[in-house]
Design a protein around this nucleic acid. Sequence first.
DNA 1: TTGCATACTTACTTGCAAGTAAGTATGTTT
DNA 2: AAACATACTTACTTGCAAGTAAGTATGCAA
Lengths: 182, 182
Amino acid sequence: MSDTREEILNLAEDLIRTKGYNAFSYRDISVPLNIKNAAIHYHFNSKADLGKAIINRTRQNLVKESNLWKDLSPVEQLNKFISIYEKSLLRNQICFMGALGPSYETLPEQMQTELTLASEEIRAYLRNVLQRGLDNGSFNFTETVSEKADMIIASLLSSLILTRVTKENIFLQIRNTILKGV
Amino acid sequence: MSDTREEILNLAEDLIRTKGYNAFSYRDISVPLNIKNAAIHYHFNSKADLGKAIINRTRQNLVKESNLWKDLSPVEQLNKFISIYEKSLLRNQICFMGALGPSYETLPEQMQTELTLASEEIRAYLRNVLQRGLDNGSFNFTETVSEKADMIIASLLSSLILTRVTKENIFLQIRNTILKGV
DNA sequence: TTGCATACTTACTTGCAAGTAAGTATGTTT
DNA sequence: AAACATACTTACTTGCAAGTAAGTATGCAA
């Protein structure tokens, strides 16, 4: 994969996660990278293809990272999971689900499909971590694993959005509440 | 206030909450209402003014509604609060905070200000309900009131987004989990 | 040394976006 | 009856959006 292709992906992902898919243009990519708009089209036929590639890369990242973590305890894995959101916050980004989810209805079909697949994978991963934590006694919540997983994902997603809007560190508060509740 | 002005507000709010601020145009309003784009400009100088008016109206709605509920018990008030989100879901909308928050950085300054004010008011309202519920013994959670309020708001916000993306009724699950946890 | 693939640029098209200036119809006030 | 305000429409401008067709520089391969 050429450097340019990867730099386009990196920048476009940052733009999506700071401004949203419908608020960035090829100009926002071509000017900083010092290339022409047509160069973007050379690597990605359409904006939809670019968007799809970004979601797909993120999906693959979760697979790769969760593989690196597979021998960690459920508690440590939950912390790693939460740290993904913390890294976003430090870059002034929101998570890609929070960035793309609200405009789901406006997204090209291939992006919708990819995003729905991503949501399934994220939820399945966290359910697995929570179940193993229950099994080995390191977690002891009373909700179902599915309820708990969705509650954690939902609150983390919003925490990044609300940190922006309120100008308070909602993420920190939400993380504390999550950790107290497992 | 003329009918047209109100119809523009209603339709624009629906568009924001289904597609997002950056994904709708004056055409999406003028065509269904059978008016010209310039008629929108007659009522609202700019798209920013229209956006600001929508957030402001929503703020006033919360004041009005919470006033109607002021003699209800904390439990009933929490249910009323949650039902605001349920109504959004039934209209295939997400809440305005979930729709506008992710694109906060792209919003005109007057909309940002209005949105931040709205977030403060919503959080203050829910903190008040939760505190009174703790005081009269109808709630008994261990987190701080502030933590609990932000957790509830965050999870409700995301629940509407995730219901779209996952095609499962995440809202229902989140509501159950919230009600079990107070 | 010719040919071909890669990775672009140049130059262009089409279309829609927000916004504006000037005109018009209708009703109200003086 | 004249003047004015309200609530628009008509006709236009400017600008940027995605996308495309054709050309070019570089390097490797036969």
